[in-house]
Design a protein around this nucleic acid. Structure first.
Lengths: 339, 339
DNA sequence: CTGTTAGCGCCTTCAC
DNA sequence: GTGAAGGCGCTAACAG
């Protein structure tokens, strides 16, 4: 055991068949001009030996590898796991393979520079196109098709898929208002994130539509973490006139909010309605199950993949910004306000 | 926008600095013998241009890429997502990068042959070592360090990390017995899976330890899916003497079991205790939260990565089989039996 | 139809 | 300390 046989190369196949490497290469790539007999013979040897061409070597010479690259800093985050799901599904349907490249920013260099490095690394080879998740850079130097998911900058010089953050937030607020709530607290994310800004905007727009004045005391900002959600909620709930509903700008914060409510002796949804954003899988198992805005992160992955492959195939994109739909998922954490 | 600048090569850096490519290569790989001045100059140009060497080209010439490969058929499954988490964590700690390679078995070829192909693809280059998740093959031909997670065959010729399936199942049954249960139903997985077989064994061992006869009627087998769990549970619950507790061999089945109990008008845990296996994140949010066996899939990923890197660094492995610990997680889905 | 030749970008001798 | 030459495994152009 744990003995390592040496790697098989195209040379080995050529030798074993008694033809030249180029002939082997031709059957490997299904070029037409090979005699049926030769073709079959080579094919059989390949089969017997279990040979597969090395991705690295192949990609150096040919422009086409049939592999999509997905670059992310952290494959573990809930968001990225969902992205992976969507990309993988699309890639499967469209007949491509997938390489997920994950590398930590160890050097402490600027995030944008790090992103550029990752791309260069895959670039010039290996993959036919790249999807990058939540990049901070607003420009990339690459010879390859590239598309971003949820880019954190407004104006970028590459195509981007984003969620309809503002519209989703608007829907959340409209729903709460339809239940009779008028004092609605908001727990936001980091203000340097495009998505956080857009959700706050949706919140404000929703109130304005209903002619409700915006009370700055009701607007807090966390960092999309459960812990921050907890603290923001505590702050909101200790207000002299506390809100009857809280819109947390992501599900993690919403979970923290519910914990804070419990600790304060408030029942959800009886005494406090809570609505989230994201629809991560966990929240459908909670009790009460969380009412939230589904931003179908996985469909962002799917859309990005489909567009990228169009780019690869030379079809020009008609748009530079693609939006994945959001929708309200009504579960048990909101209730009509008691007057 | 969407203009693609051409790829930067080591040549560009050499030209810009006014030195030869070999010198650039030397500073790139931190070989000692470069004059400090030259070193600094080259370094600066690299920085300015944002150059990074192409992984493909680099891997063709040098044996070391500092990248670990993780091969899996389906990156979307709960199990594999957990594996990814563990591997990513370890890789981060140990200073390696990670490539996850996912390719579908489109050709309809044998699973083992397909696995071999994936490995060959990365092999000969690209990565320093490979982790393969739940392989069916029992032997691999590769020139590189390789380790498997939860191999589905008993005897394989490469090192493997598995969960302590039998011991975990044993713990589950012991716990139920300690609560006074004596009629304990079992919902298993596919019998061609090593893990399913071992869990069944643990169930039987637990009963035997307590001198409880094994009743074949109480043993059902599903396929680790929620739906199959539901059906098996229905079957168990319609028995003339129905069980007071059910041990489902994975959490998905346990969820199905609880659904079936509800449908039959049985309260969990009041009328039926249910225990699962896996401890997937969702089940801690259920109500009642599921009592289960944590097999810490992610720690399997972590262990596999650590061992693999030892292999890469030339340290011989002392073992060929590594076991990730399991432990009982007591939550709310089990109760002492009412006599 | 098939073999020969010339690199892809990089690292590694081996000279100087 | 540095440059020039050779080749990793593969594909694309060119001959035959």
């Amino acid at each position: 055991m744990t003995r390592f046989k040496s790697t098989l190369t195209i040379q080995d196949v050529a030798r074993a068949t008694g033809v030249s490497v180029s002939t082997v290469s031709r059957v490997l790539n299904d070029k037409g001009d090979v005699a049926p007999d030769t073709y079959k013979k080579v094919q059989r040897v390949i089969e017997e030996l279990g040979y597969t061409s090395s991705l690295a070597a192949k990609s150096m010479r040919s422009r086409k590898t049939n592999v999509i690259g997905l670059v992310m800093r952290d494959v573990k985050s809930s968001f990225n796991v969902q992205v992976i799901r969507g990309v993988d599904r699309a890639v499967e349907q469209l007949g491509y393979d997938l390489i997920i490249y994950s590398s930590k920013n160890r050097g402490g260099q600027a995030q944008a520079a790090w992103e550029q490095r990752q791309i260069s690394r895959l670039n010039g080879s290996l993959v036919d196109g790249i999807i990058i998740s939540t990049p901070t850079a607003s420009t990339f130097s690459t010879a390859f098709p590239l598309i971003a998911i949820d880019s954190q900058n407004q104006s970028v010089d590459f195509p981007t898929v984003t969620a309809t953050n503002r519209i989703g937030a608007l829907a959340a607020v409209e729903y709460l208002i339809s239940l009779g709530h008028r004092r609605i607290g908001f727990i936001g994310g980091r203000s340097d994130l495009e998505s956080a800004v857009r959700r706050l905007q949706g919140y404000k727009d929703g109130l304005q539509q209903a002619n409700i004045d915006i009370d700055p005391d009701l607007i807090t900002s966390g960092d999309f973490s459960r812990k921050a959600g907890f603290k923001c909620a505590q702050q909101l709930l200790s207000l002299p006139r506390r809100p009857t509903a809280i819109f947390a700008a992501n599900d993690e914060s919403a979970i923290g909010t519910i914990e804070a409510a419990r600790e304060a002796g408030l029942a959800v949804p009886r005494n406090l309605s809570v609505i989230g954003f994201d629809n991560i899988p966990e929240v459908s198992y909670m009790s009460p199950a969380l009412t939230t805005i589904d931003q179908s992160i996985d469909s962002m992955g799917q859309i990005a993949t489909e567009r990228l492959i169009e780019l690869i195939q030379g079809k020009p994109l008609t748009n530079t910004l693609y939006k994945a739909p959001t929708r309200l998922i009504i579960r048990g954490s909101c209730e009509a306000v008691v007057h």
